[in-house]
Design a protein around this nucleic acid. Structure first.
Length: 478
RNA sequence: GGCACCGUCGCCAAGUGGUAAGGCAGAGGUCUGCAAAAUCUCUAUCGGCGGUUCGAGUCCGCCCGGUGCCUCCA
């Protein structure tokens, strides 16, 4: 299946041709670890995790690097506020990152470089930039000279004149040009510092990604990802740095995910209108969050709202119920060459077609819904002659789920976790519910429909929904 | 001010120029003692106005409305 993806650099969909056949080098900007992750981070996590999984699904050997920015002004400020060493702040939030992203079923990348483990690489890149006349030392601060890079602004579609007339350029006497940005920051007393040819200091934000990307993926690699907000200045500066140092463009395909909005407005730290992932987990299942995050195309903005999350919860619940019933029927069966049948199924073909069109997860999920309907119908028919078909559909569904990072729990586990979340609000008295159900079943046996309905009405009022099955009466929370 | 992007059913959301996927909600049928679940059927001409074309949601222009980037930010 030929993969096409939208390249932010050229602003169009392009055929994906890796630099090295069957191999992909991918770098995604991680987080600055000074606080808990919010839903925006969750989206970037889910989007690039899905891309990573799909590339592997296509058979590529993927070298995937995602960094931790563990030295930065914000980290230092946070440490000072709390009166703790900065390392304590970063360790805490790296730990929290793993917890939050782990629940979202985000796979661990091939490498996860930390900025502070790569100071020598950054120093050497900066030195090389100075040598090539692309950077200058001003009293211990080193700046990149934007004028030295003719292509500056290509990724973000800006030209330096416009940037200069913009109202918000940083006025800094030490800079030759207001657009120049820091590669190395001289440290003040009591600030964390590393030795360098320009005196003690710490690296600027942009240089770390250039240095680590180069180290792990080479001077030019296939894919670089991140949120749209990183295009300028972060990624623009990365290009300038890497190109300046190596003379080669660092990245072939740039991929940027859209924002998570609250009431149509970008969710961000600076606006203060953000939800942390862990806040969401208190009320919503992580897998529901993941489904919500990938139900829209990754480049479009998504609006985070209770209604939208609840819709996703309904969809996922339906999937798990269908899977549970089908698994029951397929249990113990073993269709010969199941993998081949799955691979060549029309459903899998269409799934790959959708995903290969710039990772269209929205269409992929629509296809999953259609396949679920097929599975439900086959399950209901309970026709042993069609078990193979059901088994193939179920296996295909699971396989696409693996690409999307869904359906990896057992249905029972999912249902029980959902139950617990819902029950937190209602605080249901299980014994009372069981007793009412017993009463109702006694009444049903005696064909006392009035009393039976009364029992159910009482339960409905408590938020309990009944389901009479061949195996008995089951109940769940609405 | 500069540069991008977006406006599709009540809500969410896909859509390579050929006559609108999917989900939620809603209506009706099957099933059920009644329900639930499942399943079937039904519900939009795509912000507005022009233009290009045999044909446009899909390309061009203008207008209206919304968002983002230009400062740290996924």
């Amino acid at each position: 299946m030929k993969l096409r993806l939208y390249n932010s650099l050229t602003r169009q969909k392009e055929d994906f041709v890796p630099l090295k056949e069957n191999h992909v080098g991918m770098y995604v900007c991680g987080v600055t670890v000074y606080d808990y992750c919010h839903v925006g981070h969750a989206r970037a996590g889910a989007v690039f995790d899905t891309i990573y999984r799909y590339l592997k699904h296509l058979g590529y050997e993927v070298n995937y690097a995602r960094n931790f920015t563990d030295i930065d002004d914000k980290i230092i400020n946070r440490a000072n506020e709390q009166g703790v060493p900065w390392q304590e702040v970063t360790e805490k939030f790296i730990q929290a990152f793993y917890e939050d992203m782990g629940k979202l079923n985000i796979e661990i990348p091939t490498v996860e470089p930390k900025a502070t483990d790569h100071i020598p690489e950054m120093i050497s890149m900066i030195a090389s930039l100075i040598e090539r006349g692309k950077a200058y030392n001003k009293g211990g601060d080193v700046f990149y000279s934007v004028h030295s890079f003719a292509d500056y602004g290509r990724l973000s579609g800006k030209n330096t004149d416009d940037l200069l007339t913009g109202a918000r350029v940083d006025i800094n006497e030490d800079k030759r040009n207001p657009l120049d940005f820091a590669l190395w920051k001289k440290s003040k007393p009591d600030e964390p510092a590393w030795g360098s040819p320009w005196g003690p200091g710490r690296p600027g934000w942009h240089i770390e990604c250039s240095a680590m990307g180069t180290k792990y993926l080479g001077e030019t690699f296939d894919i670089h990802g991140g949120g749209k907000d990183l295009i300028f200045p972060h990624h623009e500066n990365e290009i300038a740095q890497s190109c300046g140092a190596s003379g080669k463009p660092p990245v072939k395909y740039w991929i940027h995910n859209g924002f998570v909005n609250i009431d149509k407005e970008k969710m961000s730290k600076s606006l203060g209108n953000f939800f942390t992932i862990r806040e969401i987990y208190k009320r919503h299942h992580p897998e529901v969050l993941r489904l919500f995050l990938i139900s829209s195309h990754y480049r479009n903005p998504i609006d985070f709202s209770e209604k939208n999350i609840e819709d996703a919860a309904k969809v996922l619940t339906r999937f798990y119920e269908g899977i549970e019933a089908a698994e029951e029927l397929v249990k113990g069966k073993k269709t010969p060459s199941l993998n081949d049948a799955v691979r060549s199924s029309a459903f899998m073909q269409k799934f790959e077609e959708a995903m290969s069109d710039d990772f269209n997860t929205a269409v992929a999920i629509a296809l999953l819904n259609e396949e679920l309907r097929k599975i439900n119908t086959l399950t209901k028919q309970q026709n042993s002659g069609q078990d193979a078909e059901l088994e193939i559909s179920l296996a295909a569904m699971k396989k696409t789920g693996k690409v999307l990072g869904l359906f990896y729990r057992s249905p029972k586990e999912f249902q029980s976790e959902m139950f617990q979340l819902k029950n937190q609000e209602l605080g249901l008295d299980t014994e009372k519910i069981e007793a009412l159900i017993a009463d109702r079943n006694a009444a049903r046996k005696a064909k006392d429909w009035g009393k039976a309905d009364q029992c159910r009405d009482d339960l409905t009022a408590m938020g309990v929904v009944l389901e009479d099955t061949a195996q008995g009466t089951e109940w769940k929370i609405k």
